[in-house]
C-alpha cells in the first residue's frame, strides 16, 4: 500500500492533497501510522510497533487500522488499486 506521491504532510499532522485541495488534521497516532505507511511498512510491522508502544490489544488496533486505511482510500490519499 502506498501513499500518493504528491500528498504533503507537515510535522504538525496537517495533510494536504494538492489534487483535490482537501486538507486533513491527523492526531499523533494517525500521524505515526501514516509515517509507517509512507515508509512502505506492512500491517504486521506497523501492528508490532504500535502494540509494543501503546496499551492496546491487537484486535482493537486491527479494527482501528482498517478503519483508518479505509478513510485514506475514501479520500483518495492512497491509490484505489492498492
Amino acid at each position: 500500500m502506498k501513499l500518493k506521491e504528491n500528498i504533503a504532510i507537515s510535522d504538525s499532522g496537517y495533510l494536504f492533497n494538492p489534487s483535490t485541495g482537501e486538507s486533513f488534521v491527523l492526531n499523533p497516532l494517525g500521524m505515526e501510522v501514516l509515517q509507517f505507511v509512507k515508509k512502505g511498512k506492512s500491517f504486521e510491522e506497523i501492528s508490532k510497533e504500535v502494540l509494543t508502544r501503546y496499551s492496546v490489544d491487537s484486535i482493537t488496533f486491527e479494527k482501528d487500522y482498517q478503519d483508518f486505511i479505509h478513510q485514506l482510500r475514501q479520500y483518495l490519499l492512497i491509490g484505489s488499486d492498492e
Binding site: N6, P18, S19, T20, G21, E22
Partner: peptide, 22 residues
C-alpha cells in the same frame, strides 16, 4: 484550477485553494 473552500449564500467563492488536478 481551484477548489472552493468557503462559499457565500450567493454561491460565490469567498476563499479557495489552487490545486493540481490533472
Amino acid at each position: 484550477a481551484m477548489r472552493k473552500q468557503y462559499i457565500t449564500d450567493k454561491g460565490k467563492a469567498w476563499a479557495g485553494i489552487s490545486i493540481d488536478d490533472t
